[in-house]
Nucleic acid binder design. Structure first.
Lengths: 196, 196
DNA sequence: CACATTAGCTAACGACCGCTATAGAATGCG
DNA sequence: CGCATTCTATAGCGGTCGTTAGCTAATGTG
């Protein structure tokens, strides 16, 4: 019992459908993406969507998780792989403009703007939590560098982390407004100059 | 003809109602603010709202205009009143954290996030245009300082303007996430360090 | 007073929202 | 085959969206 393959098999590729949902949420945000939009884009009926993904909120949560792994996870990668916090910041600042303006993908960042204008408090809180987690991770790496003497003793870790992530939010928003990659790269080059 | 006071007089204060509408749009954005929300908050019926302000889009446009004069115009003021672009940036960076976290007012900035998540292309384009205008105004002042030798010859005016305004977008978003004024002030203090 | 003019109220329109009951189609198992 | 199980398609639920028609109320003008 609790067998694996009983009954009629699913007639669509769940992963491919999820990827399409990710792009739709990415482009329009949670609120402006309707279930009808999703069923149309995914090429499936509403009941199939609900069977496969739960409800709209659960689908969004899963989209967020996969987005963060596949598209938005470059921040965690930089924090993990670079030796110093400043090198991580430099790498994030170098990569973000391209990430936020990829051809064939929506501009900006789902985690920055996905909850924009939704009255759904749970969705907004979820995204805020993800953003806060990223700030905290950056602050941790900064603190480690302060402790090791890599960064000056007076450095305000939390504020420098907020600075860096706010800068990313800002250029993600600019990307949505149509600012080009090369210009965003000039902006982040300036931004790195504020680092101690 | 085209007389001033004919017919039944309006039973509510139009300016006060507009101010309430501004705050509602500011808090929730264009899309998430329904006409019903507005009529409830403004204490008037829907037909009165439509008579006094046109439709929802026109009301939003008027809210934007007045917001920019009363709440968001500190950027233009700084550009006009400060001698140098850097002094203007310093003033904007000093003022913005308080502006974005005023007690009794919504957090963040209507012009930054008012169009968030709306499928209404006209509304989005309108706000984008306002944002672009502000970037351009900043870039103009930077260019003047480059011409006068106040700023180094190699300074990228457009990018420095984008940097400054993206930083403001970023902290406006952070303010919406609940980051406090004092922390935002530390962030903008860091941000000013990137200026030449 | 009668009348034109303007505002307010009730109620509703058609369209869309997220979601689902119901019935039929496709599979594995016996 | 017959049957349980699982997915799909149609159609529609109750609710909200922005907006407005139709009527009443309140004003200035004659």
């Amino acid at each position: 019992m609790a067998s694996t393959t009983r009954g009629r098999p699913r007639s669509f590729d769940r992963d491919a459908a999820l990827d399409k949902a990710i792009r739709l949420f990415w482009r329009r945000g949670y609120e402006a993406t309707s279930v009808r939009d999703l069923t149309k884009e995914l090429g499936i009926g509403a009941p199939s969507l609900y069977k496969a993904f739960g409800d709209k909120r659960q689908l969004f949560a899963e989209a967020l998780r996969v987005y963060d792994e596949e598209y938005g996870g470059f921040i965690e990668a930089a924090l993990a792989e670079e030796r110093t916090a400043k090198q991580a910041a430099a790498r994030v600042f170098a990569e973000a403009p391209a990430r936020y303006t990829r051809r064939g993908l929506p501009a900006g960042c789902l985690i920055v703007s996905g909850d924009a204008g939704t009255p759904d408090a749970k969705v907004a809180a979820h995204l805020r939590h993800i953003r806060e987690t990223k700030v905290a991770a950056f602050a941790d790496k900064i603190r480690a560098d302060i402790a090791s003497g890599e960064l000056p003793a007076g450095t305000e870790a939390q504020s420098l982390a907020h600075y860096t992530m706010s800068m990313l939010s800002g250029i993600a928003q600019a990307a949505r407004d149509g600012v080009h990659r090369t210009e965003l790269e000039r902006v982040t080059r300036i931004a790195l100059g504020a680092w101690p």
